[in-house]
């Protein structure tokens, strides 16, 4: 990280210009956490937390040497959400949301 100052963003204040500022913010190492924007954090089909890979993917990545998972979440028009893997299998048998029985149609996919 370069030594450039944060407040270079806020024009009109930098090192060259003596001001009565008490502190200069040099660096900010931020930490944030992401999670799927879901109402219920458990997938009703496989009963695993949506932040974790679905049961099937967990089983498969056991064989993988690396735990890299690509098991995303899918939202229906009804706003219910499931693992995409789980829902893909589900709709083959029954094209309704397992929670509200509305006809299933995808509203958006997690990425």
């Amino acid at each position: 990280m370069s030594g450039e100052d944060f407040d270079a963003l806020d024009r009109g204040d930098n090192d060259g210009q003596k001001s009565d500022k008490m502190f200069t913010l040099k660096k900010w190492n931020a930490v944030a956490m992401w999670s799927w924007d879901v109402e219920c954090d458990t997938c009703a089909i496989c009963r695993v937390q949506v932040m974790d890979a679905c049961l099937r993917c967990q089983g498969e990545s056991k064989k993988d040497s690396y735990g890299k998972q690509d098991c995303v979440v899918v939202w229906g028009e009804c706003n219910h959400s499931f693992h995409f893997c789980c829902m893909s299998l589900w709709v083959k048998q029954n094209n309704r949301c397992p929670l509200c029985q509305q006809e299933w149609s995808i509203q958006r996919m997690g990425k």
Partner: peptide, 20 residues
């Protein structure tokens, strides 16, 4: 990304201040 929620973990963020 899509479908993600982001929250700041302020207590883990660290800043570096220089006294003037």
């Amino acid at each position: 990304f899509s479908g993600r929620r982001l929250a700041w973990l302020h207590h883990l963020c660290t800043g570096e201040l220089r006294t003037r």
